[in-house]
Structures are given as C-alpha cells and as structure tokens.
Simulated assay, not measured.
Amino acid sequence: MASVLGILEERETAARVRVEGLREEVARLAGVLEAAEIELDRRVIAREELVEALAASAAETAAVAESTAEAGQAAALSLVPVPGSTVPPWREGLPVTVLAPDYQRILGVVEERAEVGQGPLKAREIAVGLGLETTPAKVEGVRSKARRLAERGWLLLETSGAFSAGRRPVAVPDAGPSA
C-alpha cells in the first residue's frame, strides 16, 4: 500500500511541477503578446499618419494644379469629401459634408452626446459610439482623428483630454487646409 501512495505522490509532484512550468510559460507568453500588441499599435498609427501625410501632399499638389483652374470650379471641388482627405479649418458657413466620412461620424457621436446634455467624451467612448472595438489601435485612431478635428476648430478639446461639441475659428497659415 505504501508503494502505491508513493507512486501517486510522485505523479502528483510531477503534475505540480508541470503546472508551474506551464504557468511560467503563460506569463512569459503574455509579456511577449503585450509587446507584440504595442508594436502593432505603433505600426497602425504610423501607417495612418503616413496615409494622412501622403494625402496632404497630394492635396497640396492638387491645390497647385487647381490654382490654374477657374476659381468657381476649385471652390466646388473643395467641398467634396474624399476618404483620407485633409481636415480643413472650420469657418463660419463651412458644412460638415466637406469632411471625410470617418470625421463626420466622430462629429456625429460627440454632437449626439451633447444634444442629450451629457458631458465631453474620451476617445474610448467615441470608439464605442462608432461601434468599434476598444483595442488600443482603434482607440488611438479615433483619438488622432478627434484631436485633428479639435486642432482645426471642429471640436473642443477639454483639459482632461476629452472632446466636446463646439466650433471655434482657428488661425490658418497660408489659408489652405493642412493634414
């Protein structure tokens, strides 16, 4: 009987050692996963910034080409939103429809919240309002776009880092939209 108990204790000890080893491996892999997620988030943000920079460059090139066109035609074309396009500075009489659809949706979420009398929104809350996953990459993308809207006067950026509805004119160097 003692030998059977000894065998069971040996097996229990071996199982305990295996469980501890697996726990250590899981902890190590969790650290590796976290580092990989951070790298992914950085790359997503870098790609979005590059797309916006390229769009700004293309917009500047188009602006030079349009400057030779008739002024009325240039004004009409500048009101058409293009995905990935620049965010023009807000000014009186400028419709929301000049913004790309993603920016219009962000404004809609913030303004809808303001209409029901609720306070400013954090980027994560805006992402939820847009129906997006609240992964760091998605939230940072929303924060980047909301911050751009605030810089251009379409939203107000609170000191807490939250965004609220409201418009304000902004200084425009060279009077052209920038990225």
Rank of each mutant, 00 (worst) to 15 (best):
E24H: 10
G166Q: 02
S164I: 04
D41V: 09
E60A: 14
E66A: 14
S57H: 13
S78M: 05
R152S: 06
L156S: 07
L107C: 06
W90S: 03
T13V: 08
E112L: 11
G153V: 06
W90R: 05
E151V: 00
S78N: 02
V51Q: 10
A165D: 04
E10L: 09
A171I: 04
F163I: 00
V109Q: 03
R148K: 11
R152M: 09
G72M: 06
L94C: 09
A100D: 14
I38P: 03
A71Y: 10
A74D: 05
E39Q: 10
T97N: 07
A179S: 14
A56D: 10
R167S: 01
V128Y: 08
G84E: 01
E12Y: 14
E66N: 09
L8R: 15
G131R: 07
S178P: 01
V116T: 14
R91E: 15
E9R: 15
Q118S: 11
P89G: 04
A179L: 05
R43D: 05
I38Q: 15
G6T: 13
P95T: 07
V170R: 04
P173Y: 01
I45S: 15
R43L: 14
V32D: 14
R16Y: 08
V80R: 07
A15F: 14
R16N: 12
T13S: 14
A175E: 13
L77A: 11
A127H: 05
A53F: 13
E9N: 14
A76G: 03
L54K: 10
G93R: 08
E24D: 12
S3C: 06
V98R: 09
V139N: 02
A75L: 11
V82S: 07
V110N: 04
T68Y: 13
V17D: 15
A74E: 08
R124G: 02
E60Y: 11
V32H: 13
V98I: 06
G131C: 00
G129N: 05
G117L: 00
R147T: 12
V44M: 07
R16E: 15
A65F: 09
L54C: 03
I106F: 08
S160R: 03
I38A: 15
R152E: 07
S78F: 01
P136S: 07
P169W: 00
E39W: 04
L22Y: 12
V96S: 12
E158I: 01
V116N: 03
L8D: 10
A63E: 12
E140D: 12
A56E: 14
V142T: 01
L156M: 09
E24A: 12
A58H: 12
L22R: 11
T97M: 03
R28G: 09
